[in-house]
């Protein structure tokens, strides 16, 4: 079965969904991402859905789940590039995905994730500093 590729860039994982996913493919992506966050210790997950022409409740739930799981694993999920028609439809459908961070495009999404990475670096540094005192 084909899978959606997951790229690793610094402390972030990047997924670009470019096909009309059937449900099993979506579930596989959810599993792969979870495993990859755990194995790489990634602190950010960026999911680019700018190519998606629809997001139905199933895909919406997948995005929600990925965000929830990554939160537990101490990573931020940012969904980027949702099209206006898709956003209107999702709201009409009753899915507002309030647990997910969003950004207009990959650039903005990466900036969000980077600021988070910098924060955790600062924390690590100050923690080390405290131990050394």
């Amino acid at each position: 079965m084909d899978r959606i590729p997951i790229l690793k860039l610094g402390g972030a994982l990047i997924v670009t969904i470019q096909v009309d996913m059937h449900d099993r493919l979506a579930l596989a992506l959810e599993e792969d991402l979870t495993a990859k966050i755990a194995s790489t210790g990634a602190r950010g997950v960026l999911i680019d859905i700018s190519a998606l022409e629809i997001v139905d409740s199933f895909i919406g739930r997948m995005l929600d789940n990925i965000a929830a799981v990554s939160r537990v694993l101490d990573a931020d999920t940012v969904v980027v590039g949702m099209r206006p028609a898709v956003a209107i439809t999702l709201v009409e459908l009753g899915l507002e995905l309030t647990g997910i961070k969003t950004a207009l495009n990959i650039e903005r999404g990466m900036a969000l994730i980077r600021s988070r990475l910098d924060e955790s670096k600062d924390e690590a540094r100050s923690a080390r500093a405290r131990r050394e005192d």
């Binding site: 949702m82 206006p84 999702l90 709201v91 507002e96 999404g109």
Partner: peptide, 12 residues
């Protein structure tokens, strides 16, 4: 409210 929710989904 719907407009605002949709804009948020897009990242604005």
């Amino acid at each position: 409210l719907k407009t605002i929710a949709a804009a948020r989904l897009m990242g604005a």
